[in-house]
Design a protein around this nucleic acid. Sequence first.
DNA 1: TCTTAGCACTCACTCTCTCTGAGTGCTAAA
DNA 2: TTTAGCACTCAGAGAGAGTGAGTGCTAAGA
Lengths: 356, 356
Amino acid sequence: MELSERKQKILKVIVDLYVRTAEPVGSKTIAAQPDMDYSSATIRNEMAELTNLGYLEQPHTSAGRIPSAAGYRFYIDRLMQDYRLTTDETQSINQAMELRMQEFDRAMSQVGKLISQLTNLPAYAMTAHTGGTTVKRFEILPADRGSFILVVMTTDDTVRNKLIKLPLQVTDGDLKLLSAVLNASLTELPAESFTPELIDRVTRSAGAAAGLIPIIVDFATQMLEQCSRAQVYVTGQNRLLGHPEYQDLTKAQQVLGAIDEETISNLPAKLDPKSPMQILVGPENVSRELKDTSVVVTRFDIGEGMQGMIGVVGPQRMDYAQITARLSYFAEGLGRMFSKPELPGTPAKAEENTED
Amino acid sequence: MELSERKQKILKVIVDLYVRTAEPVGSKTIAAQPDMDYSSATIRNEMAELTNLGYLEQPHTSAGRIPSAAGYRFYIDRLMQDYRLTTDETQSINQAMELRMQEFDRAMSQVGKLISQLTNLPAYAMTAHTGGTTVKRFEILPADRGSFILVVMTTDDTVRNKLIKLPLQVTDGDLKLLSAVLNASLTELPAESFTPELIDRVTRSAGAAAGLIPIIVDFATQMLEQCSRAQVYVTGQNRLLGHPEYQDLTKAQQVLGAIDEETISNLPAKLDPKSPMQILVGPENVSRELKDTSVVVTRFDIGEGMQGMIGVVGPQRMDYAQITARLSYFAEGLGRMFSKPELPGTPAKAEENTED
DNA sequence: TCTTAGCACTCACTCTCTCTGAGTGCTAAA
DNA sequence: TTTAGCACTCAGAGAGAGTGAGTGCTAAGA
């Protein structure tokens, strides 16, 4: 059954007010709203019906109404107005994005922090590699005496390096041979195919620098593994405490405990792969700890078989319109930033790495 | 004035009990302690004196006593017994350390998590580079068509790379020339000396691949900058909430707000550079938000002008003996792990990086 | 038929008051 | 010097009364 125009209007007012004040909304307050031309009694009747229909809840007999999960859902799907970012907001977001992102990883964690700050809620950011990656290319450079730099590039254009220190005297020719062997034997293979037999064969043909092989294979395996694993950053947990629904410490702890890296990294499985922006209201979250908590998440493509996800976690009562607007803006910017081919002067679509 | 043996004994019992129970300790409880051969009245007298001397505090007239900051300090400096790690503990620590640490950064964040878990307190881990770093070596490798991998190695043996995508056709010879020029002109220089004039000169002598120069310089600058900046990881903030002293949300928030990355990264300045393990009890912390909060921190060297720091933040009432024991064990292990020269099969003392 | 005014009712919250008991300080005896 | 005893203090728990925001229902008005 379709809600009457008036019921929708009342529901919307209730959600809007409740999101702002965190107090149950009474019929009188609603009647006092501008553009609300009915008496409190009429509104009371409508509210009673909305309650029967499951869109509202009453904490106790003599309190006003608050939206139920279904009420939020209806609001999100049907009533929510587009929130327009203010110039200030876009400016501060743009500024933050311009901050030189040396690494993709670090960029994501920065973004998480910023979102958390803007929304005053805990935020998370994660990257996930989608395809099966293999090594595209090995490169070995001599560094100091007895040190080598190993550079590995994978099919998803991740490049990593490692400084290897081994008391080993090898010539440039040895290294050339070694990298030729590696490139011939170990590229385009998933980590699973690095069998002992294969490694053994490679080692035998590697000549003087064969001592490097175990380290190289180890490193490549780790790297491929790591590429397939999602990376998650959670920040701003403490902001949760600012919201009245988490004044109850037990609850706050439960929720904080539930939004650690592990849990979040399992989130994507539960999401509809089609729509980029998703809102999970309270009980729609599968985990029991989050049954009074909402999750808003958006995805964006960063090319090369990689995806990014950013989102926030907060009370059901949150300003969905504002938050979705901000998240989209961010996601768009990040997507643009990281999937563009590199141009001089543009912040790179790249990540780097340290080696010690 | 030196405290009598008996006073010390009583103080120690009070700290031990209070750490365990978080309840003010009364004279009767103390008298009931095994090995305590005085009546509650005697103990009351002693407690009154200890209070006068500033080692104890009384929350209100009819409550027991709790240690003051000075009391904790005395306990830490004089009374604390060495805590012996149980086999279980060392095992779980060792296990965690064996987990393959692909990157130093990641290792530190893992360690932070583990400490937080073991101590049930928020923990932080940070790395700081101590010396002024310069670039030791540039290397440029062609990757795909129009892609190059830039590898930069600094004097502290950090190696980073970056994938550069530029629609540029260059020969191997061009790249050789380019890296020769870079190595000749930009190595052994701090980031400050990368003046426009210098860059200009380099660009002019770089030949066909000069288009890469701005990106390379940019990258090198960022990298040097980043090396000199401390990296901080804070985890387990939510564990703070489990402790009764932070049941008051305002307080919990204050403290959580105060232990973000920035604040922590300023911590080392306040520490005595000589002693590796340090405990800041309540008011000994400079920041006002932490006046009821203690910080335990330990440092360890990881060679190459780098230092690591791990620590925890918690209520004054914490089991200092246990915590310092665990931290030392960790610090020792980490120090060993990361300052050893690399051997085949050993987890590397290295860090890597991703490039996308 | 829909809307609204009016009224009795409900119930969370706040405030006050009392009671309880853990813990103290002091005194005097051992 | 130690200890038993006693009067005193005071936070915290619990009970009871008062308050007021908000409700549902009824009956009158449009």
